[in-house]
Design a protein around this nucleic acid. Structure first.
Lengths: 223, 223
DNA sequence: GTCAACTAAATTGTCTGACAATCTTTCAAT
DNA sequence: ATTGAAAGATTGTCAGACAATTTAGTTGAC
């Protein structure tokens, strides 16, 4: 059998594109937490039909990025601090495990990619670009999760991080948080590079806990 | 203000009911892994319209209970052993954590409920009712996850277990697996009841690893 | 002026029907 | 048997419709 040369990209359907657009909009804070999404409005804004939109909304609801209440429709969840805590705790569990595994299995090539991602975050950390800070940090973690040897952990982690994206971007804008975050990430990177699983796990735990504390602070400061 | 007496049940929509029905059908093995789901057929079988069905399918796809390939439609995923392993490993991570937390925080009342669930499984374990074995075992874990203090862990765990329900029911039908499972669950229960977190985690890990081994065995034996 | 009840408008849940694009199957030809 | 082409089946997407429910606005009573 010949090697698979099928380069054909999977056709992107309207519903897929819509899910991606809405997900990005939610990440970007286009919608106020707690606010309602009106189907007819979204249809016009997105230029699609109501059935396609509703399919997309069901996907997002299953991802917990929106809530859909019968007869009231979809809205952006306004997470309580308890819920945010629970998500951060779950994230900690997954991230510590992923970092630990990663430290034992990552290839030299991927380690270089990780270093590059860290540099990118370093550049963003001292800039004023809030979006860049969040995306470069996400890239860093994405590499770790992709190399932990378990795609399920990656999948779950992605879903969790998505749900608290707003908190992340807000807390990352806190005075000094980006730089402190950078230091923690460097520690993680160094431990992984050294293949020191114990240190890597410890650093990962510390990072998530500090991120959680920062999120709490930014939440208490109102907005 | 009067206490909230609003007992009104959230209206169940067609799409919700459909998601539940299909989920149950998937759990029960009504559909062969790898087989395609034809929309028009399902519409007739469920007595609903295509838009409602498609919304339900998008929900299930987001839960990873089905796959939807553009222009080909939805089908039941045929999980590879690697994927199953990855799910079991993630389950181990969550379950060990949940059991550990549970051992420290569970109330006496819930502990009684857990004991009752264990008895129910004991009864089912020596019976020939395969469905009862799986559901009572699920009830046992459901109580633990509901009392671990983190609803997110519960939510993720439920999703993971759902994806390997077929493997679970098959492996539970293996000669002696139910009884061995019972012994492991008793160990978990006793550790929780004793408030011994370390022992509880150890027992939980052992249980998941044995379940995974059983699943592998049942998978290799073909069917 | 505030609160309650009622009416009107907006919104969701669901269905039917339609049609182009794509996939699958059938069947004939080499 | 393999190839190729035509026919059929299936999906992706839209438009339009309508009942049930929620929301908003208005009126009326105190």
């Amino acid at each position: 059998m010949l090697p698979d040369l099928n380069l054909r990209v999977l056709p992107r359907t309207v519903q897929q594109a819509t899910v991606d657009k809405l997900r990005l909009a939610i990440f970007s804070g286009v919608f106020e937490p707690g606010s309602r999404l009106v189907e007819s409005q979204l249809c016009v804004q997105l230029g699609i039909s109501r059935p396609s939109l509703r399919e997309a909304l069901r996907s997002l609801a299953a991802e917990r990025l929106i809530d859909i209440v019968p007869n009231k429709g979809p809205f952006i969840p306004a997470l309580s601090w308890e819920q945010v805590t629970a998500i951060y705790e779950a994230r900690e569990l997954l991230e510590v495990e992923a970092v630990g595994r990663c430290s034992q299995t990552i290839s030299q090539q991927e380690l270089q990619a990780l270093e590059k991602a860290l540099s990118a975050f370093e550049a963003a950390a001292s800039s004023n670009d809030a979006l860049a800070r969040v995306t470069t940090a996400a890239d860093f973690y994405s590499i770790i999760l992709a190399n932990c040897g378990n795609p399920i952990l990656e999948e779950i982690h992605r879903g969790l991080v998505a749900r608290i994206s707003l908190f992340r971007s807000r807390s990352m804008s806190l005075e000094g948080r980006a730089l402190s975050s950078l230091a923690e990430m460097k520690e993680i990177y160094n431990s992984i590079a050294a293949g020191d699983e114990k240190a890597a796990r410890k650093a990962a735990r510390k990072h998530v806990l500090k991120a959680m504390a920062a999120a709490k602070k930014s939440m208490e400061c109102g907005n």
